[in-house]
Write a protein that binds this DNA or RNA. Structure first.
Lengths: 241, 241
DNA sequence: AGACCAAATATGGTCAGACCATACATCCTG
DNA sequence: CAGGATGTATGGTCTGACCATATTTGGTCT
């Protein structure tokens, strides 16, 4: 039968969605901000005329999205507190969709290349900005730390710090959050890459080249250095440049 | 029994998190993919030795992250089905964090600039690739549709289509998902921008310039055109270039 | 046979109530 | 006044029940 099941994707109002909307309204109306507390689950349920389980599902969604965290017990810190962790949600998102093969590693690597090139160009364009200075200092520290270790896992940790510092240079929290999620989701892959390469000297040369280009304010060189680095660490079989 | 009391900030293992992990394992082990069904809530609860409410909270998380959708009723399509919608989660994430002032509009606009420049350069570098051809055609359509309307809301709809087509040119689903979320979260802001500008001729000139640069394979011109376009649509008071 | 309608059933959605574990608040004792 | 015992508010979890929905099943009528 060629019957279209049609409209089943449409509005099916669920109680927890209503709760979600009401909580959002409340946040906006009361001007709640990070650190403020929401009413207790039982109280919310009564106020909104729903069961406590529906309230809990709504809070679970907010927690997943990094907007609240829940603490048990009693006192000022107990209950659902507004927070701000866009990063954990992004990380979960990437991890799960990578697992489902909805996203490929190549797409993740390409996205990293986009972000890091952008950040490097921005940083090199404003080499004396405060955020660039901080980032450059942390990048230098990370390079030194990578020099000082022979352990692959430790090397990767400092490598992550290096690239995260780079992404933080332009001072865009959204991009930092995305970058952090990307790095977390490819952490294991990165270790494999280090082990496979064996010699980390080439990677360190790249790191120094990136750092120097930013210090010199040479945006073009910075972009090239980042591209060369990612091409070395994650060679793309499909693209031969 | 290994008693670790778990200090305050440590992992507080919750039943639904265990369920989440087990479902993930199951997806990986059974090689489940988009379209496959998970067992029913009651069955899962029994298998995992937890209450149904805990299973439901786990499923709510997965639904929030765009990994499953739930359908009521009976039959092959009922129950929790694996899907792939990273976009809706990203949109919610951005909307909520913009509401909480965790992210600023400027950061969102800057991220858009990054993505669109990257996409334009990629497209211009491979002007004859299939994905670029498709994208260019849709961009041309969108430009024509914008020419044909005087309604701000309708203009914005086609404008979104134009920019989304641009982002899709390189064929990276992750970046497309991010771009879609960004556009959705600034939709209202975009309408205001159009109304404020009054004349959409300049925007259309930009659109044509972007499209032409891609057709001509001129990566530099494409990047410049995108930057000029976003600077016109969302002037940055802090940056005077 | 076929078409149509009614009952059975599987599924998610929701609620109410109970109980536990936790962690601060309060009170009582010495 | 210090320190422990008790109280209590909070989230976490389970159970059981019922509802709404949508398919499946089976029976009945034409």
């Amino acid at each position: 039968m060629t019957v279209e099941k049609a409209r089943r994707g449409d509005a099916r109002p669920r109680a927890f969605e209503e709760v979600l909307a009401r909580i959002e309204e409340r946040i906006a109306a009361d001007g709640l901000t990070v650190g403020d507390r929401l009413p207790g689950e039982r109280q919310l349920a009564e106020q909104l005329g729903v069961g406590r389980s529906s309230v809990r599902e709504a809070l679970r969604v907010l927690e997943t999205l990094g907007v609240v965290t829940s603490q048990v017990g009693r006192g000022p810190d107990a209950g659902a507190v507004l927070t701000s962790r866009p990063g954990s949600a992004l990380t979960e998102l990437l991890r799960l969709h990578l697992g489902l093969a909805t996203l490929s590693m190549r797409e993740v690597i390409d996205t990293r290349l986009m972000i890091e090139q952008w950040a490097a160009v921005r940083a090199a364009t404003a080499p004396s900005a405060a955020s660039t200075r901080t980032a450059a200092a942390r990048m230098a520290e990370a390079v030194a730390a990578m020099d000082a270790t022979r352990d692959a896992a430790e090397f990767v940790e400092h490598d992550i710090a290096f690239h995260l510092a780079l992404a933080e240079a332009p001072g865009n929290r959204l991009i930092v959050a995305v970058m952090r999620a990307l790095r977390d989701s490819v952490r294991r892959y990165a270790e494999d890459a280090v082990v496979r390469l064996g010699d980390t000297g080439g990677l360190q040369d790249d790191h120094r080249r990136i750092h120097r280009a930013i210090e010199d304010g040479d945006a073009g060189a910075a972009a090239d250095a980042v591209a060369a680095h990612l091409a070395r660490a994650y060679p793309d079989p499909a693209r031969q440049s």
